[in-house]
Design a protein around this nucleic acid. Sequence first.
DNA 1: TGAAATGTTGGGGCG
DNA 2: ACGCCCCAACATTTC
Length: 484
Amino acid sequence: MSDRSPVLLWFRKDLRLDDNAALMAAVQNGGPVVCVYVREPQSEKVGPLGAAQEWWLHHSLTALDAALSEKGNRLILRSGTAVEALAILARETGARSLFVNRLYERDEIDPAILEQLHRTGLEIRRFKGQLLHDPKTMRTGTGGPYRVYTPFWRALEKEGEPREPVDAPASIPAPAHVPASESLADWDLLPQRPNWAVEFENLWQPGEAGAHQRLKRFIDKPIERYKRDRDFPGLEDATSMLSPHLAFGEISPARIWHATRGLTATEDMIHFRKELVWREFSYHLLVEFPRLASANWNDRFDTFPWAFDKAQFAAWTTGQTGYPIVDAGMRQLWRHGYMHNRVRMITASFLIKDLMINWRKGEAWFRDTLLDADAASNAANWQWVAGSGADAAPFFRIFNPILQGEKFDPAGDYIRRFVPEIAGLPNRYLHKPFEAPLAVLKEAGVTLGTTYPKPVVDHGLARDRALSAYAHVTGRSADPDPRD
DNA sequence: TGAAATGTTGGGGCG
DNA sequence: ACGCCCCAACATTTC
């Protein structure tokens, strides 16, 4: 059964050796494996990766190449369209087949690409591993896709345990003549002047080894307090921090799920699993409703009267809104390529409801700056906050940035870390410097409008404005329609 | 995985 | 002792 001609193994967002179905099959095929990553030109459907993710990709490809070296192989880098680059590589190596793991966000473009490659004479085999379950097989009792999370969760429970993850192969045979690889340095993935990624290096270790360290550390202890602690952005190590690794496929969700199996089914463990399943749910929605990525899932929001104030948007992106919890979050995002989940909800609510800026603007900003940016999760979660998504928070659920700060960062650890210019304020005023008496501000060395901005909007007024705008969507207006 | 507005209840001060 | 008011505490409704 073994065909000894080389197999092309096309790595994409599955930059791992562990639990990699395409890799296992390629090794079992018996012949050499040509491992390739293709840098495709950006098109409407492909990329570009955000700038933050280019930084991650650089280091992740380095890590993958090192891991392959330990198995007696290496990673070949090529650029060009997938069809051309892979066809050329197949010709150079005499490969007769192409193995690849399925990427659901590429469902619209992959079939044509793979069909073209098939026509060049390559046998094509696709494998799964991006998700716990195939999102297309999930069906409600009436045969449709799920639109609500809880039934989706129950359905997954009913499916039983996800498949066992498979360990990395002991070795991966390389071709006798290793084809040429482009130089990673030439891809210019790392930021130059200014190097805004300086702090990334201390915080993150891209690659499979880093992913497994994170997992081990989290399962070891923090998961025992996950349900409660995950809401407090000031706590270190309360969450798994696995999201960028998952986004690049450096670790499979099945591997993570499997790691939780040794634990007793506490509420903490269940809540962690539920977060993994939110990711599944987002992909389920994206696969069933591809428009989720760019259009309102609920098209009633198409008439929503969005505003766009350039200066206010800039204040949001740079963390200068005058609301400390919002600014802390946006600055964490810029400095760390990451933002705590609780604060993502607060900052998103602020952009959409206080500034009344279209969620797409926020989604695009997060896509460019988050190391864990993910096509399905990012769109689904932004629409969740906006109220336009499936099983979304109602639009009128508007976060009060002061109360959220007081509730979830009571000691102000998080704010003081990222907004140091107001660190001297007492806790009582830390979340609302604009209400502090002048003497208190002076004592803390804060001058509003100079050392720290005044609020870009008044939350109370902004809330009223958002709610009356929302009336456009519900069809209700201040003066009732006599035809009703 | 909200918050504000509005409604209800019950204890205590007080005439 | 009683009714009245105030208002905190809690519950419900509304956006």
